[in-house]
Amino acid sequence: MKIHLKVWRQRDNDSKGYLEDHTVEADEHMSFLEMFDVLNESLVSEKKTPVAFEHDCREGICGSCNMVINGQPHGPQSGTTTCQLHMRSFNDGDTIFVEPWRAKAFPVIKDLVVDRSAFDRIIQSGGYISVNTGQAQDGNAIAIEKDRSARAMDAAECIGCGACVAACPNASAMLFTAAKVAHLGTMPQGEVEHTLRVQSMVKQMDLEGFGMCSNTGACEAECPKEISITNIAMMNRSYVGSVLGSEKSV
């Protein structure tokens, strides 16, 4: 199948970007990134600079890949990362636009590669349980309801790719932050620090320059792991409760 690509090229964050046209001969069994491999192979054979894009596991779990495909983060298939998208989702002769995540807090590094270290700093601000190695009690000392643990797992499945930010008209990082807050806050081990954690992480999120949440739900719709927007509601409740009800505040 013949695919016409309009790919975002940008030398670095200070340069102006533009869309570049390419045509690729693809196979319907190829993944989207393998189609990009073919493109890059041909660019290299013409001694041109290949398109920089981020990827690693290619099985939808590391959160590296990040392409906005025809305006949608990770493309048209729901619950799917760019690396898991296959060319059979497209038709022979299609024109496909490919762009990077766009958000102030995610500056472009080159072409489709952006800097997502803001996410690391949000986790560093409180996205953990304070337990040193060796301090743990027996793993079965606290029984946890199967459902409760499953709910924590639903939130913990976030891969930190940033599609939620890219999808949001305000480039908000609420879903990412709320998923971690919900994961840890749902486990009994994480309850003790819950209040402080919510406050610190929300504060860091604001510092990084992510926008406000205006409940459009685009984050949930584009999340490749289908993380639920109810996590945001939970975080909001905890946040409001903590600011009003707690003496501790950051």
Binding site: I129, G134, Q137, D138, I142, S149, A152, A156, Q189, G190
Partner: peptide, 15 residues
């Protein structure tokens, strides 16, 4: 010890 440590960190193991 590994399992104990990971549970304490909040790893949502299957139950």
């Amino acid at each position: 010890n590994i399992i104990d440590q990971c549970v304490a960190q909040g790893v949502p193991f299957a139950r």
